[in-house]
């Protein structure tokens, strides 16, 4: 942690539509271009230093997909800097740079990163990362390239103190990737539950004049040990969903009720995978 302002990113997972513009902007910038002191030309092929990872939850029309842009987290407590012994440095503005000369041959630095953010350039024998377009910021550009090219404005770059950022993260529910590694990354994600938490979805239906109908407006409660964890209402298609549920939540029941259509109770369990209850008939 430093008191001076450092570069941070806020990435909204729910807004990423996997257009890959950030990935391509990084390729455009780094492949075939030499920025002495910052980076040697990156390889044209293979995974780039920004990657998009897909998470799909559920199936049928209850499916949900989210995309997670992965890149160097510019950790305040960076294992790569420690392991680099001079080959990797962190600048006062927080940007972590793998030195294109000193890091030569240091394949070990790929493994030093617990976030999988280091790409090995076989031809150049160099570990390489997304270095926040530091060379452009140093020339006065306001933000790294991924910000302008992102059509949904899912990526925001800001230079603030770690304390201010922590406060903001707290207030807005922003989270780091894999905090268990304790690297104190400076990339924060919004709506990360779309990737690492569970969703439970289903549809309420009722028999009306002998045929099934989607049931709108059913009261749906998620219950554990007699306690209501969350509550929602079914929409015009009878659909309902609970999100941001912790893996391993265990036994749950879903109670549905509707003034005309009656009720239903479904027992389920949340382990490690999302749950699709399917059609639930109220009677």
């Amino acid at each position: 942690m430093t008191a001076n302002p450092t570069w941070h990113l806020i990435i909204d997972v729910a807004e990423c539509n996997h257009c890959h513009n950030c990935v391509l902007a990084a390729k455009d910038e780094l492949v075939g271009n030499d920025f002495p002191g910052y980076s040697a030309p990156h390889a044209a092929h293979g995974p780039g230093v920004i990657r998009i990872e897909r998470t799909v939850r559920g199936h049928g029309h209850w499916v949900d997909a989210a995309h997670l842009p992965r890149l160097c987290q510019h950790c305040a407590n960076a294992p790569c800097v420690a392991a680099g012994q001079g080959a990797v440095r962190q600048r006062p503005d927080g940007i972590v740079i793998f030195d294109p000369v000193a890091a030569k041959g240091r394949r070990d630095l790929v493994d030093a990163c617990p976030h999988g953010a280091v790409v090995w350039n076989e031809a150049a024998q160099l570990p390489q990362t997304w270095f926040f377009d530091a060379h452009l910021l140093d020339q006065g550009q306001a933000a790294p390239r991924c910000v302008a090219v992102c059509p949904t404005q899912a990526i925001q770059a800001l230079k603030v103190s770690d304390a201010d950022m922590a406060q903001r993260a707290q207030a807005e529910g922003l989270r780091r990737l894999q905090p268990e590694h304790g690297t104190q990354g400076r990339v924060f994600y919004r709506h990360l539950h779309r990737v690492d938490r569970l969703r439970l979805a289903g549809s309420a239906i009722a028999n009306v004049q002998g045929r099934p109908e989607c049931l709108e407006g059913a009261e749906v409660r998620l219950v554990r040990d007699g306690q209501v964890l969350a509550q929602t209402r079914s929409n015009a298609f009878g659909d309902f969903a609970f999100d941001d549920l912790p893996p391993g939540a265990g036994r749950l029941s879903v109670h549905l009720s509707h003034p005309q259509a009656g009720q239903a109770v479904v027992a389920t369990a949340l382990a490690q995978t999302p749950v699709v209850l399917g059609d639930v008939l109220l009677s």
Binding site: L24, A25, D28, V149, Q153
Partner: peptide, 15 residues
């Protein structure tokens, strides 16, 4: 936004 957005095929044109 005060920006002309781009598509992936435009951003990849250098290659």
């Amino acid at each position: 936004r005060r920006l002309a957005t781009v598509a992936s095929h435009a951003l990849a044109m250098k290659s």
